[in-house]
Design a protein around this nucleic acid. Structure first.
Lengths: 192, 192, 192, 192
DNA sequence: CATGAATGAGTCTTCATTCAT
DNA sequence: TATGAATGAAGACTCATTCAT
């Protein structure tokens, strides 16, 4: 793909996320997306084939970016510090891309949804990163017993999403640190 | 309102929830809703005036029902048992109305959303019920310090939603008790 | 179907035939058809579901009408007179519906075409009517041997189409009788 | 024109005929033609300026080729043998270029059609070749009186087209000789 | 009261054409 | 000379809403 096309695609992603935040993917029109990105409508179809194609590529793009951000703190020697850094990284991502977070929370639990086939493996990606970290935390004896790590990781992902959105939508004045500490405090993953 | 009209309205609500579960409110058409409910399209307009009118009435109906279910366990003399019963009641509601839960998670954090004006006061209702219960738990010394009760209640509501949806969509085989215990274990409210 | 809907459909058929004559079905837009018929565009979709649906119904409508016209002279006791009357009936139909004739000649020999599945059985209908008549002519000893009746009937149908169109497009001044006699003279189906 | 360009143009012609056979000229896109011919889309515009330019060149190319094929048997000293050879040559051409034949039958009788201005003189060419031959047949006393030769030639052209298409589309198993003999038998030109 | 045929503004999509490289 | 990314006017189709019956 040419660098020019690459840039065009990224601009279409950003435009879509900005617009979908308040109205949802379905209610955003291709005309609006093209206008917001500063390209002609045909360009969307030249690059993605359809509105659905654009959405699918956007979901991949966003989730891959989030997973990459989450993976960075995994190497921290202190598991609890690493977990805190992951929570923080997630909050950073979600405040950078509130539109994408809104899209995720809207689309992730449809049964079956138009993009389930795309989203499921992507979600798996993220949950695995979190699960690995929780395993390290558990290995350090700092995770409550009785909850399967897979379940805890999935719950952590969902909780992060909704807490971040609560923060961004209803209490944008609070600092990221506050929110991060609240999440950690609400998780049982703190010292006994 | 006549009992017959009442029944028609309820059937339209149920049809809407069934259809919106996998596609979202915006993507569901009035034709489909009428067909699914077994009435003529004109009947929707006769009863609700518009699609938005139907949606608004549905949101009120669902949230009021959920709030009512949550309020019942508040009278339990043991705050922790009451909290557990509330979590359980929420899970019961969400498994009874998975479509409504999906609608909530899709619409609650739009900024600003088409139904924000309707949803915000309704959400307030639910969060307040949870906050009151958390206050009782805190009064019994069983809630970690440092997290404002309002924030904790809001987070609890979101977490309940996403954990319930995780359960219903991805692990429908698990029992409600398991899920409830996982939620309680993951909340710091199990301190001591 | 209500009489009102019936009338609407017929008007859409007539409008489509008028417009398709000079440009072909593909080049005619649904907007134009609706405007020509004096209804809103949505009415086309309410009645036929799609442009293709309209075209398919139109093909059925036109071919059935033609077959009906052709069947009338079959009862003539004189087979040659009956054949002449059939040729005449076909020419009458084609001069009444030149647009439909143009559609037929454009669509009949696509391989495979979008409406082949619809057209093939319809064409069979017409060819059978002609074949039956040729069989009566042959029974009276007035048809050359060596050409299968099926083939002759199919060829007669095609020839009628193109001769009628030659007449309507290039020599509209000639009378129908002249054209009919030319067709009959060019066919070997005349006295030996 | 360079030989290479000549080859490119011919490949675009062949691609267009292949694609237009089942869908018609209007429904075939420049993208498809370029892909089928194995060249970039820009090459079409480089060589023909527009889609219409390509189509016009194709019509000229095909009709000239057909006329050339038809002219060859005109020198046969036996007019009936020459006519039979012409019919045969036409059938050979149409079986070699079924797509072109389909284009002709679709476009020839539009009133007025997009390519009428191009097609009419071309058609005149072919009809004249046939008319000349019929004149020779009539000179030998083997053509029925009462049908103007111009009309008979035009009808013969149309009949050849539709009989050939009937053959190619509905009865591809039959031999060309059979079809040729059927055409001749059905023409009154076999008188005596 | 209820219906369903009809409406038309608004969407998604196509595709002939242009033009920078 | 050839390419293919980009364009935007135009076309197929949707769907909330209206209204005569």
């Amino acid at each position: 793909m040419s660098p020019r096309a690459e840039a065009t695609r990224r601009r279409l992603f950003e435009a879509t996320m900005r617009l979908a935040r308040s109205r949802g993917l379905v209610a955003v029109t291709v005309d609006e997306i093209a206008a917001e990105a500063g390209v002609a409508k045909g360009t969307v179809y030249y690059n993605f084939g359809s509105k659905d194609g654009l959405v699918e590529a956007l979901l991949r793009y966003g989730v891959d970016l989030l997973a990459e951000r989450l993976r960075a703190p995994a190497s921290d020697p202190d598991p609890m510090a690493g977990l805190a850094a992951m929570v923080d990284a997630a909050l950073v991502f979600m405040s950078e891309y509130p539109g994408f977070s809104q899209i995720l929370v809207s689309e992730l639990w449809r049964a079956p949804g138009r993009w389930q086939a795309t989203l499921l493996p992507l979600r798996e990606n993220i949950v695995l990163v979190l699960e690995d970290q929780l395993r390290r935390v558990a290995g350090a004896g700092r995770f409550p017993q009785g909850v399967p790590l897979r379940t805890a990781a999935a719950a952590l992902f969902g909780t992060l999403l909704v807490v971040a959105l609560d923060w961004l939508v209803f209490e944008p004045g609070r600092s990221r640190e506050e929110v991060r500490d609240a999440v950690l405090a609400l998780l049982a993953a703190r010292a006994q």
